[in-house]
Design a protein around this nucleic acid. Structure first.
Lengths: 235, 235
DNA sequence: ACGATCCTTCGGTGAGCACCGAACTGTCGT
DNA sequence: ACGACAGTTCGGTGCTCACCGAAGGATCGT
């Protein structure tokens, strides 16, 4: 028997626009630092500290301290699921053939989607895993780029990851995928890859959401570049 | 793209303990009057009025005016789903074998569960439908008990529904089942039946949530008493 | 050792809001 | 027509809480 106080307490965590914004930002699966989130939400660092404490206390977020940084992240794929369920009430009505459409929409999301600015879902995970051994090193809990990976990226993107970078965003970063329960590739390289995939029409967005579909050109490119075969399909 | 303000606004509706309690009460699918809810939540009628306005405005509840009464009800099965998703975070962890377990858990809920204090799901609907024509009258949108139904209950429960009752809770009441999209039996009789089913071990709770499972004894009882056959199973 | 950076703790301020009682409107029963 | 009852509107009160700036760790780079 769940008490009303429990439910109210959980809801109160999301009832503030700043905290809600923080949670939505974290929906990308990345771990953000406290000040990144403060800047993103447009509040003072001291204010963000308080919010993060409440969210961690409430079990929605987990934190990891690393030197003088405090990284926070959604606690659990179920939290992401919850946030997406809540957000789903605002998306344009799924309408038309109701249940079926909803089911195929969620299937499409599992198949492929953007996560923040990189690829996720089965597509994102497949690309990531194909890159492992082709230039991406998976050293348990983190990714790294080998020289071979660097030249592969230069060939594919015409972009050298070793170029001096402005921001401090890491080149490669693991990002937990909550439909696949595996990591996919985030970070600057993940974003560049996604940009190129979209730019070349290898994947196209389905509607206005985050779901993407692999095109025929994309299938060919994946076969040539990474030696993997995926069917685009569906809807 | 869902804005943080939307999410915060939705969450704020549930972030108050009184409103949360009202929504949980309405999880039984019944339509309550404003003063019933005020009494239930322990606040003044004027306070309840305000809360109900906000909840209706926010789309979580719908209202129906009938004479001097104002009946409110969850707007939609998806609202009930949302409330259950949120509440699920407080039930002891379903754990073990993760994803599969989650799928079977939701299947178990569809199969049989308690709804407030009576039976719901396929089990609840099957029992209700078997009782129709055996003493339960379905006069479109409401149930009523015939004399035959009364003696059936006396035989089965050793409890006479015609006894003077303390509260004002109706004897029988239809309760919309959002997995079956049919009505099942609520009210005092529904509660007594559920109590007896549990007390006799005809159904047992699965874990500590609301899901229940029909036992072998329960299958026999349903066959003898109502002439229906259901398989218990799963998990 | 030094300053820069990240984060935290601590008052203080202001707005929002949950609550009530009292007065009012509408509906029902007799 | 009358009182009883369901619900509403309207001030007024008090608490919670989001926010900031200033000051104080803690850690990093040099």
């Amino acid at each position: 028997m769940t008490s009303a106080a429990d439910l109210a307490g959980l809801a109160a965590l999301l009832a503030d626009e700043t905290r809600a914004g923080i949670c939505l930002a974290l929906l990308d699966g990345r771990a953000w630092t406290a000040s990144e989130l403060a800047a993103y939400a447009g509040v003072a660092p001291s204010t963000a500290t308080g919010h993060l404490h409440r969210l961690v206390e409430g079990g929605l977020l987990v934190q990891r301290r690393q030197g003088r940084h405090r990284y926070v992240q959604l606690a659990d794929p179920s939290v992401a699921q919850l946030l997406e369920d809540l957000s789903a009430r605002f998306e344009p009505p799924p309408d038309r053939t109701g249940g079926l459409r909803a089911a195929t929409a969620s299937a499409a999301l599992r198949r492929g989607r953007t996560c923040y600015d990189h690829l996720a879902g089965r597509l994102g995970v497949a690309v990531t895993e194909a890159m492992i051994g082709r230039g991406l090193l998976d050293n348990g809990g983190g990714f790294a780029l080998t020289p071979a990976g660097r030249s592969w990226l230069i060939d594919l993107l015409g972009w050298d990851p070793a170029w001096p970078r402005s921001g401090r965003r890491p080149l490669v970063r693991g990002c937990l995928d909550w439909t696949e329960r595996r990591e996919h590739l985030g970070g600057l390289v993940g974003a560049k890859l996604c940009e190129r995939f979209l730019g070349h029409g290898w994947v196209v967005r389905i509607g206005s959401g985050r779901a993407v579909r692999l095109t025929a050109a994309g299938q060919a490119a994946l076969r040539d570049q990474l030696g993997i075969t995926l069917d685009g399909e569906g809807v």
